[in-house]
Design a protein around this nucleic acid. Sequence first.
DNA 1: CGGTGCGTTGAATACGCTCAATGCGGGTGG
DNA 2: CCACCCGCATTGAGCGTATTCAACGCACCG
Lengths: 228, 228
Amino acid sequence: MTTHHSDLRSMRSTARPTAGGERSDRVLQRDEHLFHEGSRLGQAYLVVAGVLKTYLLYENGEEQVLDFHLPGDVIGLDALTDEPSYCSAMALDTSSVRELELPDPEAALVSGGTDAALVLAGMHRAIRRLSRRLHMASTCTDQRLAGFLLEFAESQGRRGCSQRQLRLPMRRRDLACYLGLATETLSRTFTRLQQQGLIEVDNYDIVLLDQRGLQRVASASPCQTRHH
Amino acid sequence: MTTHHSDLRSMRSTARPTAGGERSDRVLQRDEHLFHEGSRLGQAYLVVAGVLKTYLLYENGEEQVLDFHLPGDVIGLDALTDEPSYCSAMALDTSSVRELELPDPEAALVSGGTDAALVLAGMHRAIRRLSRRLHMASTCTDQRLAGFLLEFAESQGRRGCSQRQLRLPMRRRDLACYLGLATETLSRTFTRLQQQGLIEVDNYDIVLLDQRGLQRVASASPCQTRHH
DNA sequence: CGGTGCGTTGAATACGCTCAATGCGGGTGG
DNA sequence: CCACCCGCATTGAGCGTATTCAACGCACCG
C-alpha cells in the first residue's frame, strides 16, 4: 500500500523478529525493481538505505509516480490485503530494504472473508481509485470527462440501470470540482464531446452514443488531441 | 473512508442488524451535511436513496470533491480507524441513509494499539495524502513544487536532518512524474522560485531560503499568481 | 413581472506543453 | 590525456488548451 512516511517507531512494534535473530537485508541496484505491479507480495519492506519510488505505468507509456520512499519508510502494506500489489517499486539509487514479518493477527485477519478483510479491501480499492484519478488529473479535459462518464455508466450498470442513458445526479459545479476543472470548461467539454457525436447532452440527461469512441478518447495518449 | 462503489452484497454481510429489527433511516435534505471534516463518526452509512458527495475544503475556499455516493454505496469506513473523519459529506439532493452497525471484530480491532489498527491508520493516512495531492494537481506549478519542497523538508526534519538544506534523491524526470509536470516545466519552476529568492538551486542540492515565503506560495489562492 | 440560480457561450489572456538547441559532467576508448 | 558520447538538466520559441471575466439564455418562484 505504500505507506507514506511511516516512521520506524510504529513499525518496529509490529515487526516480528524472525526466530534466530536478524534477517539479512536485501540490496537493490539503481533501476532495479523491488516488486512489480500485479505481483503478490507476502510481506512488507522497510527501507534501510537509499531511495525507491512506487509508481504506475499506463497504457500510453505515461508514468505516475505515487511516492518516494526514504530510509524509515515502509513499502507494501498492500501485502496485508490478499490482493496483488497495485503498483511497482523501483530503486532510484543503490538501496537496501529489510523484509518485515507480518504480525500474526493480520495473517488471520487478511485471509478468508472476515469483516476486517472487507474493510481493508475497501480501503485498498479507494487508494487505487485515487491513484488513477491523480494521473487523470494531468490529462486533457475530454479524456477526464469521457473517463468519468464511462465509469459512471458502469456503476449504473452495476445498479441494474441503463448503461447508455445517464441522469447525472450532481450539478455542474460539483462535477467540475470532482474533475478539477472550471465549470465553464466542463460545459465546453460536454458540448465538444457532443459535437464529436460521442454523446448527447440535455442538461442532466446524457446519452452515450458511441461507447467505443469514448473509450478511445478516455485512454488516448496526450498528443492525439490535435487531430480534428 | 468513502468506500467507492462498494456494493450492497459485501456490506450486508458485515452489517449486524440491531437487536429487535430495522433501524430507521435518516433523511437528509439537499445541501444538508451528514458529517463534517474532523468529526468522529462511530459508524458507517449505507446510502439508501438520493445522492451525496464527500469533499474537502481548502484554506483558499477551493473545494475538492472526492466522490459521489449513490444508493448502495457505503460512506464513512473512516469510522473503523479511531481517527476523526478527514472529509465532509453532504447531500446533493433529498437523500436517505442507514446507519451501519460496525461488526464486533473491528470494534476490538480498531481500538488500542493493535497491529491491525496501525495498518488501518497507515492506509488512512495514505488516502488523506492522495486526496490532498489530487487537489494540488489542479494548482499552478509554483504551488506544487513549493508544497513538495516543504513536505520533503519536513520529512527530512523527522529523520533528524536539516530542514533548510535538502538533497533531492530523485531525478528531475521522476519528480516531474510525481508532480504531474513536464520535466522542462519543472526545471523552469525551479529557476522561477530561485529568481524570487525563495530557494537556491544547485542541481540536486536545494536550500530553502524563505520558508514562510514558500508556505505563502504553496497555499496561495489561484488568482494570486499574477502579482509580480 | 422581475428576481435568482444555473448552465452555456464568447473573447482575451495566461499557463504549461512540445520540440529543438545548448550546457555540463562522467564515462569510455583511442 | 584528450576526444567523444551519453544522460540529464536547462533554456528558448511557438503553440494549444484551460482559465478568467463577461454576457446571455432559461427555468423556477415569489
